[in-house]
Design a protein around this nucleic acid. Structure first.
Length: 518
RNA sequence: GGCCCGUUCGUCUAGCGGUCCAGGACGCCGCCCUUUCACGGCGGAAACACGGGUUCGAUUCCCGUACGGGUCACCA
């Protein structure tokens, strides 16, 4: 039996080193961002290092711009690598596997020399045929393993001379791990506890490809070892290959890092893990920032551009699969670092809930000061090319903030403050605009004309005086007043709106409403 | 299908043998505040997948079943 041999508690001291190792095959999914976040939180919590390494061993899947996207996404989230891509070079580089290509062959050969691996000449096509035949015969999954390898073209079955001749002739070959038969591979996952798999159920995975590049499995183990990684924190989709990785550490006679396999982010509705399609289908982003593949034209929407604040986004992701064990839900990055604990990460997948995500953003927005809200609003207005009075920005921002989830709502929810209504809400018009409304509005105009100070207080006073002097209820005049000035049936206090709009504008709007609504 | 992992309100989750006729949050519903909307306050409906054990006692431990997920490439 092989048991992962790792030293007991590596969170002590300041030697924790973790890495986020994405493959640059496209934009980074929010699940990936969460993995990076957990790695980062764990490292910072223990005073360790967070490295960013690019796993680009598959030349065929390289997507230009993807690496830059990854770095920019993490930066937006406030996750900064201590070392590696986007961080410092501390002598453990290069940090792109494609640039480390030369060193992997040596490790493959080491395994070959110690009989932990072997050379195989079977082509990908030949293997496909084997799999296909097995499938048609109704057999279980065909595997290249301790049973089948005896019938394949490899250095275990072929005479030594023939193997050498083939290699000399330049025939393509791969290096496969030689798994021992019937051994229980065990390792203790920091989230799941003991995980155990028998090598009889595993296959002799390719470690080194015919194109001269290592596979993920080899490169990953070699790099983690060389870079001194102490904790491997990654998605659950890696759990099935973790035993193979343990066997590789074993074969190299290296000690294993600690493992922690994170639960997956699942679709909000149906079964399966969250995908780009779900975002398109359900109308929410699945990526941190906007993405555009210049070659294919493929694009995707991001949280940043959707209007999320990085803190809110991070807060939302952190709570998806982890909780502090208390009732606190609102955290900034620093608080997350102190509260984070791998043992509090849940085991089961989390269905993604965009509604809750919006709540985090709304919550964050409410925490902003009036000045901050004002500058958010100003930015939105400037982007839209709308005109506004600078001195009212703060007032408008705080007035609109209670009905805003995103910065853009500060503006869009109060559009009538920047543009005169072009149409009037039909429902309100039918229910509230009566025969006598036009006359009432005219009466109000007459009173407003004489008002010297057209601020909230005086406007309210004038309005209420009109009501009491004519024995009218608020409900008789208020709604049509609002309709006339804003075109809407609901919204913030009319008196504040009047102050912001100014006397001339209010009077003009009422007059127009009288003409249009009759 | 094989292997691995998982299973508490609709959703995210608390719970690490008695404190649980199960707590919080989002969402939903109602009431109050406001002669509008929103905010806020208060309240409500809503869950331990099932079956066996172990135990004086299981949401909590073990085993099955069911269901869900992941993975089975010279991709990561």
């Amino acid at each position: 039996m092989y048991i992962c041999t790792n030293s007991n508690d590596r969170t002590m001291g300041s030697n924790v080193r973790v890495r986020f190792a994405p493959s640059p095959t496209g934009p980074l999914h929010i699940g990936g961002v969460r993995t990076a976040l957990y790695n980062y939180l764990f490292a910072k919590k223990h005073g360790g290092d967070f490295l960013l390494r690019i796993e680009d061993t598959d030349q065929t899947r390289f997507v230009p711009g993807a690496e830059k996207y990854i770095v920019e996404s993490l930066a937006w989230c406030g996750i900064s690598p201590d070392e590696g891509i986007g961080g410092e070079d501390r002598g453990n580089g290069p940090y792109r596997q494609s640039e480390r290509k030369a060193m992997y062959r040596e490790y493959a050969e080491r395994l070959l020399a110690s009989d932990k691996a072997y050379i195989a000449f079977d082509s990908a096509d030949e293997l496909d045929v084997m799999r296909q035949m097995a499938k048609e015969a109704g057999a279980a999954n065909w595997q290249y393993n301790y049973i089948t390898r005896g019938n394949m073209k490899n250095s275990l079955t072929l005479p030594k001379e023939e193997v050498e001749a083939k290699m000399a002739a330049g025939e393509p070959y791969v290096v496969r791990i030689k798994l021992p038969r019937d051994h229980e591979v065990r390792f203790e996952d920091n989230i799941r506890g003991w995980v155990s798999v028998n090598t009889n159920n595993m296959d002799d995975k390719v470690l080194f490809k015919a194109d001269g590049m290592p596979t993920y499995h080899l490169a990953n183990i070699v790099d983690d070892h060389l870079m001194g990684i102490t904790h491997v924190i990654r998605g659950e989709e890696w759990l099935p290959s973790a035993p193979l990785h343990v066997m590789l550490y074993e074969a190299f006679e290296w000690s294993c890092p600690e493992f922690a396999h994170l639960p997956l982010l699942l679709k909000p509705d149906g079964p399966g893990k969250l995908s780009k399609r779900d975002g398109d289908r359900l109308g929410f982003p699945v990526f941190p920032i906007d993405w555009k593949n210049e070659q294919t034209g493929e694009s995707a929407n991001g949280y940043r551009e959707f209007g999320f604040y990085p803190d809110a986004f991070i807060n939302m992701l952190a709570l998806l699969g982890w909780n502090p064990g208390t009732e606190q839900e609102i955290f900034d990055l620093a608080e997350l670092i102190t509260a984070f604990d791998l043992s509090k990460v849940s085991k089961s997948g989390a269905k993604f809930d965009f509604e809750k995500g919006k709540w985090f953003n709304q919550n964050y927005l409410r925490g902003l000061s009036q000045n901050q809200l004002a500058s958010e609003l100003k930015r939105e207005l400037d982007n839209s090319g709308l005109t506004y009075k600078e001195e009212f920005l703060g007032k408008i921002a705080s007035m609109m903030s209670e009905r805003a989830t995103f910065s853009k709502d500060l503006m869009t929810e109060g559009m009538f403050l920047f543009q005169a209504p072009v149409e009037y809400d039909e429902k309100t018009r039918k229910k509230k605009w009566r025969q006598e409304s036009a006359q009432m509005m005219q009466d109000l105009v007459n009173r407003f004309v004489d008002l010297k100070d057209f601020t909230e207080g005086p406007v309210e006073e004038a309005f209420k005086n009109y009501l009491s002097e004519n024995d009218l209820g608020f409900g008789k005049v208020g709604p049509s007043f609002r309709l006339a000035v804003t075109g809407k049936g609901m919204g913030p206090s009319m008196f504040v709106i009047c102050e912001v709009l100014g006397k001339e504008e209010v009077i003009e709007r009422i007059k127009k409403a009288i003409r249009v609504l009759g």
